[in-house]
């Protein structure tokens, strides 16, 4: 695929054009200092120097709470879907998060598509910003999702000394580059070399967290992990659900109806497979009544070969958000370590 160079003094111009073309979601620093992927209204709002965002991109494609149907129960029952569609450009988002979207694509696409997810996904463009330095919690190298990617993005931007190296990864990304050729020049070999140098250096900045995904995958796939591992992990988990909500690829949801006037809406909400009642049946029977069973099911779904084959890859991108968000010590890094040690 093609690569271009965008001089530093033209970055804002290009961002301005994107803002006129679509809603732009970019890293934005809020008043507390935390960074969120959030709609921006001017190039100056983009926090180019951020390390990681509090949340992944999931919320934009699968909201924590969304209305899927509207119904009226008057004389005659009427039901209609509530679908939201708009063009969105996700700018300067991290490669782990773009990889997370690719995993969600496999889950929500396929033979039966989820129309709500796909309507948003089809109109989204992902421009990633490669990481030059890992954050404390990061282990994307273990998750095969960064800090630099070979593919999976529409465009991947790398901040070079004099401007952005823009790599195109899809037709959508190429079309975007074509539309703004006046600002771009073809990348020079020394610019590509500079990127490779930055990529190498970035890999040396990872901290204490890692994830033994290969070992965990093998043991989970063959159901070799003894029960004691899950029981011990259960003592290190308070079932807050934070790891699932912060995970770029966790996508469980539940559905509830809500009455409003002489009708109502059907909504879906994020759910967490770690919750006690997640699999509880109307009869009261709970096939995963034990906390340890729920942990086993979660990590099997995330890392086993069986599910990796269905989704095209395993479901950990190494963003480390579960490390930050864990109320105890049962995040991906701790869990794979426990599984590896047996």
């Amino acid at each position: 695929m093609n690569a271009y160079f965008l001089p530093r003094d033209r970055v804002d111009e290009l961002v301005g054009r994107l803002l006129r073309a679509a809603e732009v979601i970019a890293p934005k620093r809020v008043e507390t200092g935390d960074v969120f992927y959030s709609p921006v209204s001017s190039p100056g709002e983009v926090a180019w120097d951020y390390k990681t965002a509090v949340e992944p991109l999931k919320r934009f494609l699968l909201p924590q709470q969304e209305t899927v149907l509207r119904f009226s129960t008057g004389e005659k029952l009427r039901v209609e879907p509530v679908l939201e569609e708009k063009d969105r450009i996700f700018l300067a988002v991290r490669n782990c998060d773009v990889t997370g979207v690719n995993v969600l694509d496999a889950m929500f696409g396929g033979e039966i598509e989820d129309p709500y997810y796909m309507a948003r996904r089809r109109r989204a463009t992902f421009i990633s910003l490669a990481c030059l330095e890992a954050d404390e919690q990061c282990f994307c190298v273990c998750g095969d999702a960064g800090p630099f990617l070979k593919n999976g993005y529409d465009q991947q931007w790398t901040p070079l000394a004099e401007g952005m190296l823009i790599e195109v990864g899809s037709d959508k990304g190429q079309a975007l580059a074509d539309a703004h050729q006046d600002l771009l020049s073809p990348a020079e070999p020394d610019q590509v070399a500079e990127k490779l140098q930055l990529a190498k250096r970035a890999e040396e900045t990872f901290g204490e967290f890692r994830s033994y995904i290969a070992a965990a995958m093998r043991r989970l796939t063959l159901a070799e992990t003894p029960d004691e591992v899950w029981e011990r992990l259960a003592d290190h988990c308070v079932e807050c659900g934070g790891c699932t909500f912060l995970c770029p690829t966790c996508s469980c949801f539940t559905v509830t109806d809500r009455l409003e006037g002489d009708g109502g809406v059907r909504e879906r909400h994020w759910d967490a497979c770690l919750y006690n009642c997640y699999a509880r049946e109307a009869s009261g029977h709970n096939p995963r009544a034990e906390h340890s069973q729920r942990l086993r099911a979660r990590f099997f779904h995330k890392l086993s070969h069986q599910w990796a084959q269905r989704n095209g890859r395993h479901a950990c991108v190494g963003c480390g958000r579960c490390v930050v968000g864990c109320q105890a010590w049962a995040h991906m890094s701790a869990a794979t370590e426990a599984i590896r040690r047996g």
Partner: peptide
């Protein structure tokens, strides 16, 4: 087999048992 189920089309994940969706 039966499990608690929401979407019925392999998206919500509630009915997963091992490597299978009961619904799908």
């Amino acid at each position: 087999l039966e499990r608690h189920m929401r979407c019925g089309i392999g998206k919500c994940n509630h009915c997963i048992h091992g490597d299978k969706y009961i619904c799908l």
